[in-house]
Design a protein around this nucleic acid. Structure first.
Length: 576
RNA sequence: GGUUCCGUAGCUCAGCUGGAUAGAGCAACAGCCUUCUAAGCUGUGGGUCACGCGUUCGAAUCGCGUCGGAAUCACCA
């Protein structure tokens, strides 16, 4: 039980005892006391005035007196206007602290019994990944870990868009203008080489629009299984996959299951027939099939072309049905940009019309675009921020900053390399994940991502600092240990308080599908530690019990930082 | 035009299930390394929470409207 809930339940008892009225717990608004006032938690008494028929301050005082008299956990109070500030006893906090240290799985929520699939990344195989994909990948991966921490079973998946006109464009340009170039012959990463082909095609199209006909012919041949086209397709796709693998590896992204569009693009046609049989779809005279959503405030949606071929939506209906059936999913989350809000709105509606109860368990985690100061990234104008480039730059930046600080003399070259990658990536991941997913975000390539302030490296640094203290303590044979009933300082209580709400944060963040809440929590915790660090000499404390308690406190804090940042996919170093 | 989302400090962002004097970081300025890692800490300046009306004891937060921005409404994916 959280302290807030505890106080609310006690306040219900207080009101009953003093005023004889039974109020629901939801009437008790308990929040964390603002810094300017004394106390840990504040009960807002305004909502109670109709019941108590007394002035705000008098009501607060009466409840405060009852609580301090009847609850040993509540040590003192002060009533300011309609706000009753309550201080919890030192014993309460030291017991809370003890409870946290005893819980090996602190922050891992109880199993929900729900199985959730998270689809993210889902790249096209005609060009390399850029910053927009990076946001998608980091969000998807992080939300997956977040949902796991919240007690769900999670299956991470991706649907590779490996067929279609866009792929054929790259293939066509390669055939005509690349003279047999391969990743080996050019020394170029495969996805970048194929991306070059795609760009080249745009030029070809500009010079002679007729090339589009050739590409469509190629697509038809692909669908017919033409051996030559298929083998070219396979070769170039493999180049891209190899390139993507490197990028995924650098980002620390993995999937439990990979789908390929060439396997799934025909799914959903039976569902169209089912919808027609059920009378929820209609067939136009030209043979095309539609779902009428005008009653839901939307338009008519095409589900099957007049030539009988399927569209994007058809395929998505089919894959959703297959996945829910195959994996017995309770829920499915799609991490897709907000430009596709309409698509997912329609998807859910159509599935509901087909009678699938699980349609309501589909969530579109709709995130905002990453924009540059000039606006959207445009590949035609060469303003796309390439993922590999960015990762490399972050590494260089981390290396430069680290070398400047000159603290890493004892590390081997290999350890340094690992550390630079950890820091560079930590900066990038935190930069992206600390922003509310739903909001669009701005990236300015001219200003490099910061390593100071509210950043990943700040939190990594804080962790390294704690580890340094723990190392020094261990060298003196000292270990963290908590003596029951030991007095905690106000600052230490603050730390315990923040650590204590971590599980609650995980629950909130999972509910909102927002790793940003975890990022901001980790920052608050790190910041609070740094203040404590500057005003408290941990190792020079003469009282051994206090010293050991502090070691316990900071090692617990470090462990919570690791858990929180782990959800963001960010590793914390032991020194930096 | 319809629908949806957004508008908080010079910049990037928190806060939004209504609560006390709206918070951080960056940038600027002033301090703190003979003290456990200065990628840190402390302080100063910086706000009509786009605007208006409403609901409420109380609104950045909820409702309606206005202005500004974005996305989307394909027999594209």
């Amino acid at each position: 039980m959280t302290p807030e809930k505890f106080i609310a339940s006690k306040a219900v008892e207080a009101v009953k005892a003093i005023y004889g009225a039974e109020l629901p717990e939801s009437m008790m608004q308990v929040g964390v006391t603002r810094k300017e006032f004394e106390g840990d938690y504040t009960l807002v008494v305004f909502p109670l005035l109709k019941t108590t028929h007394a002035a705000p301050a008098a009501t607060g005082t009466a409840i405060g007196e009852w609580l301090t008299a009847n609850c040993p956990e509540i040590s003192s109070f002060n009533a300011v206007q309609g706000f009753l500030n309550l201080s919890l006893s030192n014993l309460f906090w030291s017991e809370t602290f003890e409870g946290i240290t005893a819980d090996k799985d602190f922050g891992q929520l109880a199993p929900t019994g729900r199985r959730v699939m998270v689809e993210f990344s889902s790249p096209n195989t005609n060009k390399p990944l850029h910053l927009g994909h990076v946001r998608n990948n980091l969000l998807g991966s992080s939300v997956s870990d977040l949902l796991k921490a919240a007690g769900n079973e999670v299956i991470k998946t991706t649907l590779v868009n490996d067929r279609g006109v866009h792929i054929c464009k790259s293939m066509y340009a390669w055939q005509k203008r690349f003279d047999g170039a391969t990743p080996e012959s050019t020394g170029k990463k495969g996805d970048h080489l194929v991306g070059d082909c795609y760009v080249e095609f745009a030029k070809m199209e500009k010079e002679n629009p007729a090339v589009l006909d050739d590409v469509h012919e190629m697509l038809v041949k692909w669908e017919q299984g033409d051996p030559e086209v298929r083998s070219l397709w396979q070769m170039m796709n493999q180049w891209v996959f190899d390139g993507f693998d490197q990028t995924y590896k650098a980002l620390g992204i993995t999937f439990d299951k990979t789908y390929y569009e060439h396997d799934t693009y025909l799914l959903g046609k039976e569902l169209v027939q089912k919808g027609l049989d059920m009378g929820v779809f209609v067939k136009d005279p030209d043979g095309s099939v539609w779902c009428d959503l005008t009653a839901d405030g939307l338009d008519r949606k095409l589900l099957l072309r007049s030539d009988g071929t399927s569209v994007y939506m058809t395929q998505d209906l089919g894959t959703a049905e297959r996945r829910f059936a195959e994996y017995k999913l309770d829920s499915h989350i799609y991490v897709v940009g907000d430009e596709q809000n309409y698509h997912f709105q329609v998807l859910k509606l159509v599935l509901a019309k087909l009678g699938f109860e699980w349609a309501s368990q589909i969530y579109h985690l709709s995130y905002g675009m990453v924009e540059l100061p000039e606006g959207k990234m445009k590949s035609r104008e060469g303003t796309v921020v390439d993922a590999d480039d960015l990762i490399r730059k972050m590494y260089e930046e981390a290396k430069a900053t680290s070398e400047e600080s000159g603290k890493l003399a004892e590390l081997s070259e290999e350890e340094k390399d690992r550390l630079y990658h950890m820091i560079g990536l930590g900066a990038l991941k935190y930069f992206i994940l600390k922003v509310d997913p739903r909001k669009k975000m701005l990236f300015n390539p001219k200003e490099s991502i910061d390593f100071n302030g509210n950043t990943g490296p700040f939190i990594q640094y804080t962790h390294a600092r704690i580890c340094s203290i723990l190392r020094k303590a261990a060298a003196q044979g000292l270990e963290g240990c908590l003596k029951p009933g030991l007095e905690l300082s106000p600052k230490e209580i603050r730390l315990v308080k923040i650590i204590n709400i971590y599980p609650q944060k995980v629950a909130e963040a999972a509910e909102a599908f927002s790793p940003a809440l975890i990022a901001n929590y980790a920052y608050d915790l790190a910041k609070e530690f740094n203040q404590y660090y500057h005003e408290t000499q941990i190792l020079k404390e003469p009282d051994q019990d206090v010293l050991r308690m502090r070691l316990m406190l900071i090692s617990t804090l470090a462990s919570v930082l690791r858990k929180a940042m782990g959800i963001l996919g960010i590793e914390l170093p032991e020194r930096m």
